[in-house]
Simulated assay, not measured.
Amino acid sequence: MAKKKDEKTNVMRILDQKKVPYTPHFYEEGEGPEGTREYGVHVAQALGQDPERAFKTLVAKGASGGYYVFDIPAPDSLDLKKAAKAAGEKSVELLAVKDITAVTGYVRGGCSPVGMKKAYPAIFHETALEHETIYISAGKIGAQVEVDPKALLALLRAGTADIVVPR
């Protein structure tokens, strides 16, 4: 039996359980531009969203062996040196695509900071708190949730920092 496009994801169920209000948004899965920056902007534009409010989730491994979750606006690139400093690590390296599912439980393009296999330390770009709501992946390609960043950061026990490459 085929799943309905608007079926609740685990991310939505967790937000419901934790009483964090959200608005689901769905888009057609399809070929977007290559690269996470271009794809994130493409998805935001397809949904009529401001790309600055659409946050993409990136996972990195620190020099100590620990994993970290970084959420940044779709048009931006993660500054690995700033990210390492924010995480208290000597250095961090983005996870290889082949390792994303094993570490997070999500596939590339559908990675969400909510509901990963383990609760890794999360750091959002400081601009997240400048918006009334932001968009994050709902845990699968084709779905996003719009959520209050303060409530999301509280749920994840996440911090904020300047972690992007200057434009």
Rank of each mutant, 00 (worst) to 15 (best):
L153V: 08
P121C: 09
S112L: 09
P121K: 01
K90I: 14
A138W: 10
A46I: 00
A96Y: 04
A154I: 11
T127S: 04
Q144N: 13
P51C: 08
V92D: 02
A63P: 09
V97D: 07
G105C: 05
Q45W: 05
V59Q: 10
G66D: 15
T133L: 02
G105I: 15
G88R: 13
E38M: 11
V97A: 08
S77R: 15
K98F: 06
D148W: 05
G48H: 04
Q49D: 04
R108D: 15
L95P: 03
S91R: 14
K81G: 11
G115E: 04
S91Q: 09
K85D: 07
V107P: 02
S64N: 07
Y68M: 03
F124W: 14
G105R: 02
A122S: 04
D79V: 14
V114M: 11
M116V: 13
S91W: 13
A138D: 06
A151G: 10
E38R: 15
Y106S: 10
D50C: 03
I136A: 00
A44M: 07
D76P: 06
Q49I: 15
K90M: 05
T36R: 04
I100A: 12
L80V: 14
R108A: 15
V59H: 05
L58A: 07
A96G: 11
H131Q: 00
A60Q: 01
